[in-house]
Structure formats: C-alpha cells, structure tokens
Computed example of a mutant assay.
Amino acid sequence: MTATSAFFDRLTVAGEDPRFSNVCGSVRFDIRDGDQVEQWLLEIDHGRMRVSRSDGPATTVIRASAQVAEAMARGEVNGLAAITRGEILVDGDLNLALRIGRLFPRAPGPPEHDGPGER
C-alpha cells in the first residue's frame, strides 16, 4: 500500500473532521504516475467526508505527480510550498485546496514560537 492510499484510507475510516464543519465542497485528486492517472474524490459536507475512486466533477481539482503526492502523504512536503513551486496545480477553489492541506500530516521540525522574545 502506498502512503497516498493509506492517507485516503484514513480519511475514509475517520469519516468526519470537526475542523471542516463549515465546509461543503468536493476535491478531486488527479495523481499522475507516468502515463497512468489515479483519481480520488473527496466530498465534504459540513465536516462529513466521503472518499471514492472517481473521475467525477469536483469543486476543486488538485493535480500532482505520484512522487509529490507520496511525499505529502508522508508529511515531507508542504502543500502550499508545492503549489508555489508549480509541483501541484489547482483548478477551482484555491481556498478549499489550501484548507485540505490541514488533512495531510506534517513532518517533525523545530518547535514553532510566537515571535522574537515571546515565550
């Protein structure tokens, strides 16, 4: 099983995320690996999430290579940074695409702080 498949499986099992209680929309992930395109459709209805393997219409379409998708699913790549580098293309609601980034794991890094001199 790939990290990408495991990521979508976790969303399927969870079924709901309270951070998305005010969100309604759909995101299709088009993940290219050579000539093959793997598609996942994430539908969100007030925090309830449904994942399917579908090429159906979506509010937002996120396109990425399999390599970038795998790195994101492992928490090694930040989605916003990948968008700015052109590694991820977004068609549709960019705000929804950015919110979806919260679902991906984050790589461990140095602890964040509030700012200079604050504790």
Rank of each mutant, 00 (worst) to 15 (best):
residue 40 W to L: 09
residue 27 V to L: 14
residue 93 D to P: 10
residue 30 D to G: 11
residue 105 P to L: 01
residue 99 R to H: 11
residue 112 E to S: 12
residue 77 V to E: 13
residue 34 G to V: 03
residue 16 E to P: 00
residue 26 S to A: 05
residue 108 P to Y: 06
residue 14 A to F: 04
residue 58 A to M: 04
residue 22 N to G: 12
residue 29 F to G: 07
residue 12 T to D: 09
residue 10 R to L: 15
residue 77 V to H: 09
residue 103 L to R: 14
residue 118 E to C: 05
residue 67 Q to G: 05
residue 105 P to G: 01
residue 55 D to R: 01
residue 33 D to S: 12
residue 81 A to L: 14
residue 8 F to I: 01
residue 28 R to L: 02
residue 48 R to S: 14
residue 89 L to Y: 03
residue 113 H to W: 05
residue 25 G to M: 05
residue 93 D to A: 10
residue 61 V to E: 13
residue 63 R to C: 08
residue 91 D to L: 04
residue 32 R to V: 15
residue 22 N to E: 13
residue 61 V to L: 11
residue 50 R to K: 15
residue 47 G to V: 14
residue 12 T to C: 04
residue 12 T to F: 06
residue 71 A to Y: 02
residue 37 V to H: 01
residue 102 R to V: 06
residue 15 G to H: 08
residue 92 G to H: 03
residue 10 R to A: 15
residue 25 G to L: 05
residue 73 A to V: 06
residue 92 G to N: 07
residue 43 E to K: 11
residue 21 S to L: 15
residue 58 A to Y: 04
residue 79 G to R: 14
residue 38 E to V: 09
residue 17 D to M: 14
residue 93 D to T: 09
residue 7 F to M: 10
residue 45 D to M: 10
residue 3 A to L: 00
residue 94 L to N: 07
residue 49 M to R: 04
residue 71 A to C: 05
residue 26 S to M: 05
residue 37 V to I: 08
residue 82 A to C: 08
residue 67 Q to V: 07
residue 77 V to K: 14
residue 87 E to A: 03
residue 92 G to E: 04
residue 32 R to N: 14
residue 34 G to W: 02
residue 52 S to L: 12
residue 74 R to W: 01
residue 99 R to I: 10
residue 83 I to K: 01
residue 97 A to V: 09
residue 51 V to F: 12
residue 92 G to S: 03
residue 55 D to Y: 00
residue 98 L to T: 13
residue 26 S to H: 03
residue 83 I to Q: 00
residue 64 A to W: 01
residue 34 G to P: 08
residue 94 L to M: 13
residue 38 E to Q: 14
residue 63 R to L: 07
residue 61 V to Y: 10
residue 27 V to C: 12
residue 97 A to L: 09
residue 72 M to I: 02
